[in-house]
């Protein structure tokens, strides 16, 4: 029998081998040995990512029945449906780590698992649907493109698929904004107002500055994360400012200016007090979003129970079906 000492040195050897493999750029499959901290980090990150897709359906769903044209409704519905699908890809990938969807949903409901803070802001006007698609999805894509090469293979595979499908999402939002900026004075005002409200929360989506990022070290060593928060945020700002200018929107940041020397934009300080406050639960929609999810889950219980009951009664029959 292994002594504790033997077990420890065995684990150390496995860890060394694991790190060597990840350093060499090889990916990790579900049945491969992995350190517990790696698994935990992934479960946390992937379930948060999945929950974000699902909770993110709410602010957009808020406008589905009020979309101003058949085309607009169709595109918006298709986009929200994709988000549900992406939530599923991610739940499915996270389940390979030995956590069930049921547990992930329980953790969401108890507050143990988080979702992206951005969805704690309200979608107040139709222009918000434009701003969400353009800015929020735009920010998400920058992050997700980077995650396509993450070390955990099921996560990476899900991200590749998600990035491919999301390519139209940002265009959907930008098109709405562009159309409104070409429109009436009221429409332009609505679009700029949405820009003003969504710009800063979108920048917060990349998380704290690198100097204040709590989970980063392990995530980089294990190649879960491949670019820093600030790198990704900068990338987003640099590509988005030009898009805003083209359609005549003003970025609500007086400190924003092109830095010739660095070849990128300098931008003003993000309100981290607001960021931390909303994360702690005191945002405009935290309560509403979670209560919505819990209500739908609870109201759907009898349907899932019925499906289970039917299966149990008819198991034999359904086997004979083929």
């Amino acid at each position: 029998m292994d002594s504790i000492q033997d077990k420890l040195s065995k684990d150390e050897a496995l860890l060394a081998k694991f790190e060597e493999k990840v350093q060499a750029g090889e990916s990790v499959e579900p049945r491969d040995w992995m350190p517990e901290a790696y698994r935990k980090h992934l479960v946390r990150q992937m379930s948060q990512h999945a929950h974000s897709e699902v909770i993110g359906m709410q602010p957009e769903g808020n406008w589905v029945t009020r979309a101003p044209s058949l085309r607009a409704k169709q595109i918006l519905l298709a986009k929200i449906q994709d988000e549900g699908g992406h939530g599923l890809y991610l739940y499915s990938a996270a389940e390979t780590l030995g956590i069930s969807r049921k547990e992930m949903i329980e953790q969401l409901h108890t507050g143990k698992a988080k979702y992206s803070n951005i969805f704690n802001y309200p979608s107040l006007t139709w222009a918000d649907i434009g701003a969400i698609g353009w800015l929020v999805d735009g920010a998400a894509i920058v992050n997700q493109v980077s995650l396509q090469r993450t070390s955990y293979a099921p996560y990476s595979r899900a991200m590749v698929r998600i990035c491919k499908e999301e390519s139209f999402h940002q265009r959907q939002g930008y098109e709405i904004m562009a159309q409104m900026m070409k429109g009436t004075a009221e429409q332009r005002e609505m679009a700029q107002d949405a820009m003003n409200r969504w710009w800063w929360p979108s920048l917060m989506m990349f998380g704290p500055h690198d100097t204040d990022s709590p989970h980063s070290a392990d995530a980089f060593r294990w190649k879960i994360k491949r670019h820093t928060n600030d790198e990704l945020r900068q990338k987003f700002i640099d590509k988005t400012v030009q898009q805003a200018e083209v359609i005549g929107l003003t970025v609500p940041d007086p400190d924003l200016k092109w830095n010739e020397q660095k070849g990128c934009y300098d931008y003003g300080e993000i309100n981290w007090d607001e960021f931390n406050r909303v994360i702690r639960g005191d945002g405009p929609c935290n309560k509403q979003r979670l209560e919505h999810h819990i209500r739908v889950h609870t109201e759907g219980a009898w349907v899932r129970e019925a499906a289970e009951a039917y299966k149990n009664k008819n198991e034999q029959q359904s086997i004979n079906l083929n």
Binding site: L88, Y89, A93, R101, E165, R304, S318
Partner: peptide
């Protein structure tokens, strides 16, 4: 492609279609 949840075979096929073949 990945996985889905369903209680029986017919539902599994439908959910697989709706999840992995939207395009």
């Amino acid at each position: 492609q990945g996985s889905i949840h369903a209680s029986d075979k017919k539902m599994a096929l439908q959910n697989a279609r709706d999840t992995y073949s939207r395009r």
